[in-house]
Simulated scan of single mutants.
Amino acid sequence: MIDSRTQAHTSAPQAAAAFSPASLQFLTRLAQNNTRDWFKAHQDEYEAQVRTPALAFIAQIQPFILQLSPRLTAVPKKVGGSLMRPQRDSRFSHDKTPYKTNVGIQFRHFQGKDVHAPGLYLHIAEQGCFIAAGIWHPESKTLNAIRSCIDENPNGYKKALQTLQHHGFQMDGDSLIRPPKGFDKHHPLLSELKRKDFIAVKHIPFEDLCRPDAVQLCAEHFKHCSPLMAYLCFALELDF
């Protein structure tokens, strides 16, 4: 019997590119006119050039994401789905501009409640686009579980890093200055244990997202992140 997810992956026709230069042009103009009045006046352009293409991309890549893991979510909804909202949370920031000048799309683990859960991510902005995977700013309990897993089961983590590096990814995010409490300061993986984020990042040109095979390209990048995602889920006792 052919698995339905595999069938979706192999038989789905190649769709037209979801994104276009107009998508990035809108984000550039928004950065120059980041006010509620301007955004409201250009709401139709946002819908046509940014949100609709992003939702189309999510719908097109959904079979590929589910093939990587049925525990990941790919939901093409305006609110509450994989597309992150355009409004900024500026309550605790000196920057009070109301809107994000990037598109953020996240395919996170279904057992996670927010952006701090393990997941895959696509970032689109004038400053640069990138594919990412892992977990960003986990709470202390989650962070300790990952560090303990790396300490006790280093080989799986090292293999995941090797796969990522082979395919052009680099680990990114914040790190501690000193060794984390309870870990040997001479630990062979100390630089990894000091991480506060476990995120793998690969920069890609925006032009790749405008290609007819953009979904397949992104799906292939995400596939290389599977060992890291599986390891993080193992550390957190989540299915993958």
Results as ranks from 00 to 15, higher is better:
136 W>R: 02
161 L>K: 10
68 L>E: 05
133 A>Q: 01
166 H>K: 13
176 L>Y: 10
73 T>Q: 10
96 K>V: 05
117 A>H: 04
79 V>K: 15
101 T>P: 04
127 Q>A: 15
188 P>I: 13
97 T>N: 06
135 I>A: 02
171 M>S: 05
110 F>M: 11
157 Y>Q: 00
82 S>H: 10
124 I>N: 05
146 I>G: 03
174 D>Y: 04
166 H>E: 15
105 I>H: 04
131 I>Y: 06
97 T>L: 04
169 F>H: 02
106 Q>V: 09
170 Q>K: 15
185 K>A: 08
160 A>M: 03
85 R>I: 10
163 T>I: 08
186 H>E: 14
175 S>A: 11
102 N>P: 00
110 F>P: 03
118 P>M: 05
171 M>V: 05
137 H>R: 15
118 P>F: 01
94 H>L: 10
188 P>F: 09
84 M>S: 05
102 N>R: 04
104 G>M: 07
150 I>G: 07
83 L>M: 06
127 Q>H: 13
137 H>S: 13
164 L>G: 02
91 R>P: 07
127 Q>R: 15
100 K>V: 02
91 R>A: 08
141 K>S: 12
120 L>M: 12
186 H>F: 11
76 P>K: 12
145 A>H: 11
76 P>R: 14
104 G>A: 12
154 P>G: 13
148 S>Y: 07
97 T>H: 04
89 D>H: 06
152 E>I: 09
102 N>G: 01
113 K>T: 14
142 T>M: 08
169 F>E: 05
121 Y>M: 05
174 D>H: 05
134 G>D: 01
187 H>W: 10
95 D>L: 15
121 Y>E: 01
161 L>Y: 02
72 L>Q: 05
115 V>A: 14
107 F>G: 02
84 M>E: 06
128 G>W: 07
168 G>H: 00
127 Q>D: 15
175 S>R: 14
